[in-house]
Each structure stands twice: as C-alpha cells, then as structure tokens.
Write a protein that binds this DNA or RNA. Structure first.
Length: 895
RNA sequence: GCCCAGGUGGUGAAACUGGUAGACACAGCGGACUUAAAAUCCGCGGGCGCCUCACCGCGCCGUGCCGGUUCGAUUCCGGCCCUGGGCACCA
C-alpha cells in the first residue's frame, strides 16, 4: 500500500496546478456552460503571516470555487494586498526599516503561504494597493470627483498629540493620551478632503431592500448607520451680534428635532462646544472658555463621547422660542455633536432621557407636555416614566427609532393651541406654523456623515494636489499621474515624513508654473479597498476599468469578516455608485451575495506585574485547572507554576499573545488537515473560540480515508462497470442508503454554505463504507461508488489528498481530472424504503415507535398507533382526545 | 452609552418549515492487538433517581434565566442576565 505522506502529495498537487496554470480564468470560457461566477474574499493586510481568520476566509472561498467549478461555472478567485496603512509605519519605527521594504517582503512571504494552502487563486490578477500602477487610479478618480463636486475640502476634527506634533489615529489614543508621548490628546480642526457620501444616503438605504443576498444583520447595521430620521428643522431667533456687529448666523439658531410635538416643553437649548454661539460667548467669559477648552481635550471617538459625564455650562445668552416667544437660555453641552445636524438641540427634559439628565444636574425646569407619560415626583424632583413604551419615554440617541414607534392615543397637554392633538397632528401643526413664520420646515436628516478621506500619514496614496500661493489648490494634471510616493522614507512618529521631503514637496504649480508645494496628506486606505475588485477584472488595463470589468462584476459572492459590516462595505457601495454615475461601470451594487465570516477568538491569560503593567501569557504556555466536573476553575503558567488571570476570550492579537500560527499546523499535519479542521470546527458565519485539540483528529480522519481507499484500490478497479442495485444484499442496501443520505445532506449544505456539516457528511460516508461487509452482493460496487462520491464531496475541502486518491483509484479515466469532474448525483432509489418508523408521542412526550409501510395513509397509521402496546401502556385506557399525525415523522396522541 | 450577534454535554458542534435534543468529531474511560509503547481497531458516554445478580428496561429533569403561545418550543413572542464584535484616523 502506498504510504500516507501529506508533504509529498500536497507538493505534487500544487506543482501540477502551477505548471498547468489551472486556476487562470478567462472571460467567456466555453468550457463552462453556466456562465461566470466571481467569488472574492476581502483582500488581506500583508502583516507577514497568515492568521487563522485568513485560513478560514480563503478556505471558505476556495470551497465555493471548487464546488461551483465542478458544477459548470466559470469561476474566478483573485487575490491582492491591502498594502497601505498604519502597521507598516509602526513596524518602520520599531525596526528602522522603510514601510515599502517591510510591506513587499511581507507580501512575498504571505503569497508563499497562500500557495502552500492550495487555494485556487488566479495569480495573474494579483495586485497590491501600494503599487503606483494601482493607486494612480485612486488619484485619477479622486480628481474626477473633485471636478464633479463629490470631493470637497472643509475643516475636520482630529486627535492631536501636542508633544509629538502629530495627528493620532484612534488606535493611537490610549486612555486619552498619545501612545508614544503619553501627552493628553487634544482635538484640533484641520482642513481635509471629504466625499459627499451623504448625497447617496437615500439610495444606499433604499437599495438595501433590493439585496436579498445580504445577511439581514448587515443590512440592519447599515440602515442604522445611515440613520434616516424624519423631523423638523427650525430656528430659534436671537439678536446676538458678533464683533463685526452683524447677528451671528443671521440671527437664527437652527435645531433639528424628530419630536416637534414637544416644542412647548422646551426649557433650554444646548449647543456643541464648537458652535459659533459658544465661541462668541466664550470671548467674554473666561470660565466658559475654559469649559470649551476642556471639551476640546479628549477623544474624538463616539464611544467615549457617549459614556462621558453630561457636562454643561450656560452661555448667559438667550434665544426666543418661535411659538411662545419665551426667552430660552443657551447652554454648551458636551453631548451635543457639531457634526450631526446643526450642532444645536432643543432641550425637552420631560420627554428626552439625556435632556432630563442634563436638566436635573443643572437645575433647569422640567415641563411635561404629553399626557400620561411621566409622573412628576416632587420629593425627588424627578420624572418617572409611567410606562416603558418607547414613544412615551424614548431614547433620544436614536430619534429615528422613536419615529417608527407606536404613538397612538397619546395627546399633547400644557401646549396652548396644540393641546389635545396626537403626535402626528401636533408635528404637522407645529411644522405648518413654523413654515408660515418662515422659520422652519419638515426635513429628512441622516446620521451618516460625509467621508473624510485625508490622512496625515506617510504610507498611503498621495493626494494629487499642488498648493500654489497664486493659484490656490491646483489638481495635478492627468498626464502627470501618478504622483509617486517616495518609498525610502522611515517615519519616526513626529508628523508625516513627507513634509520633510523637499524632493517630494517642492514642485512647480501645474497652472502658472510658479513655485508650488505638494499636498502631503494621503488618502484613507478605505479608498484602496473600495474598488480593487474591479481592478482584478482588468489588472493591467491602461484605464481604470475596461469592458472585462462588466463581464466579471458585480461580485457574485463576497466573503469577509463581520468587522467590515459597515465601513468598508458601505464605502465600496458608495464608490461603485459614483463610478456608475460617471459611466465607468454598469451596475448599481458591487456585491450580489455577501457572506460575513465569524471571528476566530482565543482565550486571554494575563498577570499584573508589580509595576502595574500587564504580562500576557500564550494559551499554549498556560495550564488550565479543572474541577471534578471538568469545568475551568483557574489557570497557571507552565513556566513558573504560579496562577495567572483568565481574561475571557477576544480576537487573536500579537499584543495579547493569543494568536495561533496556521503555518505550524500546516507543517505538522499538512494543508488539507488544517483546512479540514478549520472548516469542521464551526459554521462559516459563527464566531468560534479556538481550540487546537481537534487538528490531530482531522489528520487522523484523512489517514483513515487514505488507508481505506488504498487498501480497496484493487476492489475499486475490478468493480468497474454497472451494477443493478436491486440485486444487492440488505446490508449493502442499508450502507448505500446512508451514503446517499449523506450526499443529499452535503449538497444541501454546500448550497447554504454550511461547510462544517459538509465535513460531517464526508465522515458519515466513510463510516458507512467501512461497515460494508466484504463479499456481500454488491459490496465491491458500493465501495467503488462510495469512494467516487466521497472523494468528490470532500475535494473542495481537501483538494490535495483528493487529487492523489482520484488518480490512484483510476477514476480519472472514467470521470476526467478531479478539478473538472462532474458533481455526484443522489440516486433516489437508494433512499427509498419499504417501511418507515414513526415516533409515537403521548401529550408531546416520546413514548415509543410505530413501524408502518412507507405508503401507509392516515387511517392505516392511526390503526397502527391504536394497536401499539407503547400507547396502551402510557394511556392506560384514558380516552384519546386528539391525534396529530405528521406524515413520515411522528404521531402525537393527546389524552 | 448606542448598534449587531451569540449562549445547547468535559469540549467544538448538529437538529433543514415548530415535530425523536446532542448527529459528526475532540478529549476521557473500558477492552483488543503488542514483550512494551505508539499507531490502529471495538465498546461506553447529558443529569438525577428507580428496577435488576446481570442483561433488558423504566421515571423525572434538561438547549443562559423568568414568563407566554402551541397537541408539541433549542426553534415563535415579551422581559431579563451574561459574552463577543462595531462605533467613522486599526484594517
């Protein structure tokens, strides 16, 4: 028998694939009658090593590829590298190496690892986003968007490190301090480029309903992110004049509200720290100025803003209530965001949770204007909700939710002329009155903000703009593209190294020829990943896209981490629509079907050091302590034997030492075993917590399959030809039924992309084949049929061993090479049974079984049930009230 | 804080449209083979209790917790708890 040597047959298979270039895809390939199928995985960041998430992601994609190809599709699976970004700069600082060199070496390493995994990648289409031939088109398209007004410039807020004099990414801000300097981070406004994604908000939202191939949860997340809300935008008037003597904002302070029906409950207004009225008031109020400065310190992250204590300070300024004419005090509040709406809100403490908290803290009046909503408690000076109905006392952080809630039967009170109106009536009446006064109108707003694409970083696509003293911001002409990023910079953490590169910065103004300075900001890396899947279709085209793009795109099946559910997927959708509107592509949406792969988590172990720091321990370096029942009660280090803390589970990361290197698994057990195990461990969409306990099991299964196939090689060859299964022995018929049941399950699970049970089905097949008694009538024919099915069903998971066995058993002659062999079919005759077993329940509890002919009708089943001794034993003569018969499944007797 | 998802044996999980909970595996235990070990093969396996010399068998409970709908709920509905992920400059 040929010995099992995974290193040998894996290398042989990979070499054969490479030599024949079998994964190269061609447009309109006549070999594949069912047409194109474009399946793409989100491109990896080239960190240098494949991690478990990659193995999972690309194996899922590889299984689709192979399954679909055997089913007649012209499949393309490309690969590229999301090569720009912060990690390369961090590595550069640590190792004093240029990000470019680090990145290119990592790409080479990772490409080798991909090839060792046996993935069916068409490498002729490989791209790296840091290649000028790629990012040239980022620049070109950015300039087209600038022409169309989709790209524009305005100031934006960033994290600023006052010591390093540099902009910090959110991940570089730790507990409000710069990661390198330790200095408290400040917010700073700088000019940046933005893309008008908000112009597409309505379409991005509306199309979600036309995307049946996307998971509901992702669509919900995107819809919430876009955050459409219908309300009223109106102005409070005032006569607050600036230094120029003119009224600030033309004497109007605009607010947006979804709850115009509560307008008579306004007892204060709140503005963001950056609001012009706040700035104005601070000029004559040092305390307020200090408060605004305090608001400027700290993070720009939404999660931090939301959990901060609600702080505020009065400006001493007043605006006029548009309906009542009352003077309303303006406060500066840290929970009001300048970037949402107009940076000002009306405060209705009686019917808004956050306003209430704010009013209680600062002693502001509370005025109830909806009946039956809140009970005012004099003692506590607080309003308690009488009901948890979301309308009655709604959560103001999600105004659009309240809008959709049931609002029937609640009337306005204490509201003058609006008394006694329902919510809808009151909103309409208030909106109409405000419109008549010329102060406001009904408006749809979105939570979605325009996409800021400027990054004050080195390792990214240079923004193709030249600043000229005479001409202003001048776009680089198309003939001068790409603006090439110098690849020999080594960042040191203090600002962008590009700024210090005179050879890059100093240039001639393209317009007047005078001295100009290049923009040193680079584009957000989300720009790179917004259209790379189009470039795969025409990787070397002299234009951004060409007609080959229309052949492959849109992507039929897109696979990637759930972590990208919002940002990347939304940006790519937006980008595609802009390209469509410019006539470059002819599709509305880029991703027809989406699979969001679950994360791979691992346990985290740590120990506090004497100095207050944290030491992490790799799970492999920790011995877990169990109690008698097998439950985990603690852990200790394998090195010093002392206890370590268990911190739960989290994503695999270098810093927490809980990553697992797939290469190690591949070296010890082979790529097929690694692939099989990762696919078997959990369904593709589920989060799974890593455990390497099963890898050996996967390897053992492959050995078993190999041994079975090799020992039966002669049987298989001698059993060629057709066999009439009606002549098979009963035991052979039973085994064959199990085989075809497993095949049916596998087919179903391939279609619904549940690959863990595909593996189970393969295991069941092998179990059934091993139980076939040698020498029984038809046993040789069944072993032959079974192996031919088993190898094909598992081939998408374990292609290397599949190819080796396929050839060794001589199936190539009958079915052709495994790569393009036809997918096996279920034989309905193999599934047919003469008798079936029905489950017998009494009052819903399992009480026995009844065997009836498979053709039995309801009357026959009922007769069999009534005759059943199991029934008699459990009913003891109690009359039967009802008989529920589920054909083919069970009978429930109700007594 | 908000949004999204998940919670089933010692462990990973399965259960397709509301119909036998735990398929298929891992770890474990028992046995066979072996001078021995590894490998391989066979068997056992949710909890509690009962019956019995033993086999065969029986009852109750059980899918995070509380409640509801139903002949029947891991599955549907309401409320709660816990865990993970995202929150716009990580990719």
């Amino acid at each position: 028998m040929k010995p099992f040597n995974h290193a040998e047959f894996e290398a042989a298979a990979q070499a054969a694939w490479a030599t024949a270039d079998v994964y190269r895809a061609y447009e309109n390939d006549p070999r594949f009658p069912k047409g194109k199928y474009y399946c793409v995985s989100m491109l990896p960041y080239p960190s240098g090593k494949l991690h478990m998430g990659h193995v999972r992601n690309y194996t899922i994609n590889d299984m689709m590829y192979r399954y679909l190809r055997m089913n007649g599709y012209n499949v393309l699976m490309p690969m590229g590298w999301d090569a720009f970004g912060l990690p390369a700069e961090n590595a550069a600082m640590k190792a004093n190496v240029a990000p470019a060199k680090w990145t290119y070496e990592n790409i080479a390493d990772m490409k080798r690892q991909c090839q060792a995994m046996g993935w069916a990648i068409d490498w002729s289409r490989e791209l790296a986003t840091c290649d000028p031939a790629y990012y040239k088109w980022n620049q070109w398209f950015f300039l087209r968007m600038l022409e169309k007004g989709i790209a524009y410039k305005k100031t934006g807020v960033v994290n600023w490190d006052p010591v390093d004099q540099t902009v910090l990414a959110n991940e570089q801000v730790i507990d409000g301090r710069g990661w390198r300097s330790g200095a408290p981070v400040e917010k700073r406004e700088i000019p940046m480029y933005y893309l008008r994604i908000t112009d597409y908000a309505e379409e991005l939202l509306a199309y979600l309903d036309r995307m049946p191939g996307w998971p509901e949860r992702v669509k919900t997340m995107q819809a919430n992110w876009i955050g459409k809300s219908a309300g009223v935008r109106f102005a409070f008037t005032h006569d607050i004049r600036g230094e120029d003597g003119k009224p600030i904002g033309d004497g109007r302070m605009y607010v947006f509200t979804t709850r115009a029906d509560t307008i008579m409950g306004v007892t204060f207004c709140a503005v963001a720290a950056e609001h012009p009225l706040a700035t104005h008031a601070a000029k004559s109020n040092p305390k307020l100025e200090a408060f605004i400065a305090e608001c400027r310190r700290g993070s720009v992250m939404e999660s931090d803003l939301a959990t901060m204590e609600k702080k505020g300070m009065s400006t001493g300024l007043f605006v006029t209530h548009p309906i009542s004419g009352e003077a309303i005090e303006i406060w500066v509040a840290n929970y009001v965001l300048m970037s949402y709406g107009d940076g000002a809100v009306m405060g209705v403490p009686a019917h808004d949770e956050r306003d209430l908290e704010f009013a209680q803290k600062h002693g502001l009046p509370i005025r109830q204007v909806l009946e039956n909503t809140l009970v005012y408690d004099e003692q506590q000076r607080a309003l308690h909700p009488r009901s948890k109905d979301p309308y009655l006392y709604f959560d103001a952080t999600e105004p659009w939710k309240a809008w959709y809630a049931d609002k029937s039967g609640v009337l306005t009170i204490n509201s003058g002329k609006y008394d006694g109106k329902t919510h809808e009536e009151a909103v309409e009446a208030v909106a109409a009155d405000l419109a008549a006064m010329g102060l406001g109108e009904k408006k749809i707003t979105f939570r979605l903000r325009d996409w800021g694409i400027s990054r004050q970083r080195y390792w990214g696509t240079p923004i193709p703009i030249v600043h000229c003293a005479a001409c202003g911001d001048v776009p680089v002409p198309e003939k001068d593209l790409p603006v090439v990023l110098p690849e020999d910079c080594v960042p040191d953490g203090s600002g962008s190294p590009l700024v210090k590169r005179a050879d890059f910065v100093d240039t001639a103004c393209p317009k007047c020829g005078g001295p100009g300075k290049r923009e040193t900001d680079t584009l957000d890396t989300f720009v790179d990943s917004s259209w790379y899947f189009m470039r795969y279709a025409n990787p070397h085209a002299p234009t951004m896209v060409d007609p080959r793009n229309d052949y492959w795109n849109p992507i039929d099946q897109y696979t990637g981490g759930i972590t990208h559910a919002i940002l990347h997927l939304l940006y790519a959708r937006f980008w595609t629509k802009v390209m469509r509107d410019m006539g470059l592509v002819h599709m509305d949406e880029p991703f027809t079907k989406l699979l969001t792969q679950g994360m791979v988590l691992n346990h985290i172990y740590s120990r506090r050091t004497d100095k207050g720091g944290i030491d992490y321990f790799a799970p492999a370096a920790v011995e877990v302590v169990h109690d008698e029942a097998g439950h985990v009660v603690g852990a200790r280090s394998k090195v010093d034997g002392k206890p370590v803390d268990y911190d739960g589970v989290g994503t695999m990361s270098k810093s927490r030492l809980n990553g697992v290197d797939p290469q190690d698994m591949v070296d010890r057990f082979g790529a097929d075993a690694a692939r099989l195990f990762v696919m078997f461990a959990a369904p593709p969409e589920a989060t799974f917590i890593w455990s390497d306990a099963g890898v050996e099991g996967a390897h053992r299964f492959l050995r078993r399959m190999w041994t079975f196939a090799q020992t039966h090689a002669d049987t298989v060859k001698s059993a060629a030809g057709t066999f009439d299964w009606r002549d098979a022995a009963a035991s052979v018929k039973t085994a064959r039924r199990e085989l075809h049941l497993a095949l049916k399950q596998a087919n179903y699970d391939y279609e619904r992309i549940q690959y863990n049970t595909v593996v189970s089905a393969g295991m069941k097949m092998l179990n059934a084949l091993e139980d076939v008694p040698a020498g029984a009538a038809g046993s040789a024919a069944l072993v032959r049929e079974g192996l031919a099915i088993l190898i094909r069903v598992l081939y998408p998971v374990v292609p290397h061993i599949g190819c080796a066995l396929w050839a060794d058993l001589g199936f190539t002659g009958e079915h052709g090479p495994l790569l393009d062999a036809r997918w096996p079919q279920v034989d309905p005759l193999a599934l047919a049974q003469d008798e079936i077993e029905l489950v017998l329940q009494v009052n819903g509890k399992l009480r026995g079984k009844v065997v009836v002919a498979s053709s039995a009708d309801k009357a026959a089943i009922e007769a069999a049930v009534r005759a059943s001794p199991d029934l008699a034993r459990h009913t003891a003569g109690t009359p039967i009230k009802r008989l529920v018969i589920v054909p083919g499944k069970l009978v429930n007797v109700v007594v």
